[in-house]
């Protein structure tokens, strides 16, 4: 039982990381209908900045974290202001390709700046910090990951329901022209979406790096694993990203924990494909994901 509960706890913590990264995708898509393929590299840059700030510039972790968030937010805002704003009205495929370009540029900058080697990640915890309950180790970093995700989701819920800019973002997502007509500054909404997404994704990356202890330029690939989570939850749904993330995290960790009990021909590497199998299954039943909004077109 302790074994199962350990996996469930790890799956939820891992799912929260996917949720945070997935939230970044969803917020941008919701506001601008753009899938940002540079999300993983924004995470990468932020994590490297935090690591350098702690280990090289000797800043406390609590100062390094906002610095990392600030840098990625600035990158997100500049990219939106200097590139994407000029692309409004262009085919989505063009914009998607531009985000892939940003992805490559950011990864190259990380390699140029820090090299390709494995470097230590910043962590405020010791490896063993946490406590044991009934044979299950509840690590500090995992507990903090879950807590941060819950608090952030509550804050986002409040933001989108009860604040001026949150309501403006929802209105823009529903109908850009109507939003313009009632005086919403759509450009500000886009900028806000990019800034917010960059910060949340970076936070996910930093929390992931705490558990990894070491990072390398492939670290941004973590965003790829979050991708089935947001598709499963519904690409334009904030709550979908969170639920999808936790489902994928749990599925992946539980499968990895039990796959060795299956015959080798099925079991080996099964956890690598279960998130995608689950995604396909759910899309077959609900083509817009669990919480995605169905598009209605008048013909």
């Amino acid at each position: 039982m302790a074994y199962f509960l350990q996996l469930v706890f790890a799956g939820i913590a891992q799912g929260c990381i996917y949720a945070l990264i997935g939230l970044g995708f969803s917020i941008i898509f919701k506001a601008s209908q753009v899938i940002n393929f540079a999300q993983g590299e924004l995470l990468l840059v932020g994590t490297y900045i935090v690591a350098s700030a702690v280990l090289n510039w000797h800043l406390p972790f609590l100062l390094a974290l906002p610095l990392g968030l600030l840098v990625t937010v600035v990158i997100g805002l500049l990219f939106e202001r200097l590139v994407l704003r000029r692309m409004i009205g262009r085919p989505p495929f063009t914009i998607l390709m531009i985000t892939i370009g940003l992805d490559i540029i950011l990864r190259t900058l990380v390699i140029v700046g820090w090299g390709s080697r494995t470097i230590p990640a910043a962590t405020p915890f010791s490896v063993t910090s946490g406590f044991n309950v009934a044979g299950v180790h509840l690590g500090s970093s995992d507990l903090w990951t879950i807590a941060v995700t819950v608090v952030l989701c509550a804050a986002l819920y409040y933001f989108f329901r009860h604040t001026r800019y949150g309501l403006a973002m929802r209105a823009t997502a529903l109908d850009q022209e109507a939003a313009l007509a009632i005086g919403i500054d759509v450009r500000t909404v886009y900028a806000l979406a990019w800034g917010l997404a960059a910060a949340i994704t970076t936070l996910g990356g930093v929390l992931l790096a705490i558990d990894s202890l070491a990072i390398d330029p492939n670290f941004g690939n973590a965003a790829l694993v979050a991708f089935p989570a947001i598709i499963l939850g519904g690409l334009d749904s904030i709550s979908g990203a969170v639920v999808g993330g936790v489902i994928i995290g749990l599925t992946s960790v539980l499968t990895a924990g039990y796959e060795s009990r299956l015959p080798a021909v099925i079991g080996t590497g099964l956890h690598e494909v279960t998130p995608y199998l689950l995604m396909i299954l759910i899309l077959l039943i609900r083509p817009y994901g669990l919480f995605g909004s169905r598009k209605v077109e008048r013909v």
Partner: peptide
């Protein structure tokens, strides 16, 4: 591409 190894280590 795995980033969490809890399941493998628990095994």
């Amino acid at each position: 591409n795995d980033t969490d190894f809890t399941a493998q280590v628990a095994q």
